[in-house]
């Protein structure tokens, strides 16, 4: 079984996000970038399936700038077998465009299973997996917290309100990963060194015949309003009075 894991380069989760002074977007200059954490879960799961002997090959793919190659190298260091870089310097690539590019990659790679992160922590769109499944006409299971492979099928447990739901999908299928799926491994230094020699193929949206022009316009980006400072109340009465004043009670 071959597994394809799409991965995205995003601003690292530990970085304090800063909006550009002119409100045109988030400032990413000189900011630390990493693989989207949910994509790490997706890749970790694929690697575990390969290590368990269920999968034979794990291929990662990204759509993005020159620099996104770093994210692919990080994925290769974690253990992916090879990588595909769909290179574009387009500043903004919407989920639908990414889904179309991935569909084109899947046409030639023919994986049995695609595992994506449930969403990217930069835009929080939570759309690419679902759109891709629709474009492919494949069954999908989102927010996976457990994956079990059967004969020609997979069972995916997902967290839903008030409990767990387990779906059985026929392969080929598409799954999006939640944080609870696993704890991703570290890339060890020897593996990072070896990853430099693993195959990384380049292509482009044009070569794949996909139009990635944005269809949405971003009007404005703003920072969330800061929280106002808390106060310390002396008594329960004062608390009640303040809450009434604030219209909470």
């Amino acid at each position: 079984m071959k597994i394809l894991v799409p991965v995205k380069r995003v601003v690292d989760a530990n970085v304090k996000i800063r909006v550009k002074p002119d409100g045109s977007g988030v400032d990413t200059a000189n900011v630390k970038m990493s693989m989207n954490p949910f994509d790490e879960n997706a890749l970790e799961e694929a690697l575990r399936l390969r290590e368990a002997g269920t999968a034979t090959e794990v291929v990662i793919v990204t759509v993005g700038s020159e620099k996104s190659a770093e994210t692919l190298r990080a994925g290769l260091a974690m253990g992916a077998d090879r990588a595909i870089h769909v290179k574009t310097e387009a500043p903004r690539i919407e989920p639908l465009a990414v889904a179309k590019v991935l569909k084109a990659v899947i046409a030639s790679e023919a994986p049995d299973l695609v595992i994506l992160g449930k969403q990217a922590i930069d835009d929080d769109n939570n759309q690419t997996g679902q759109m891709l499944s629709a474009l492919l006409g494949w069954p999908q299971a989102t927010f996976a917290s457990k994956i079990v492979i059967g004969a020609g099928t997979i069972d995916v447990t997902r967290e839903v309100d008030g409990g767990h739901e387990t779906l059985r999908l026929a392969l080929p299928a598409l799954v999006t990963a939640d944080l609870r799926l696993n704890e991703p491994r570290y890339a060890s230094l020897p593996n990072i060194m070896k990853a430099k020699k693993k195959p990384l193929d380049e292509t482009s949206p044009e070569t794949l015949g996909v139009d990635i022009a944005p269809r949405l316009t971003v009007l404005k980006t703003t920072e969330p309003a800061g929280r106002t400072a808390g106060i310390i109340v002396a008594s329960a009465e004062e608390l009640a009075a303040k809450l009434k004043q604030a219209g909470v009670l």
Binding site: E183, R185, Y186, S188, L189, P190
Partner: peptide, 8 residues
């Protein structure tokens, strides 16, 4: 821990 990786 489970993700232990020995230094190099």
């Amino acid at each position: 821990g489970p993700n232990f990786a020995r230094g190099m």
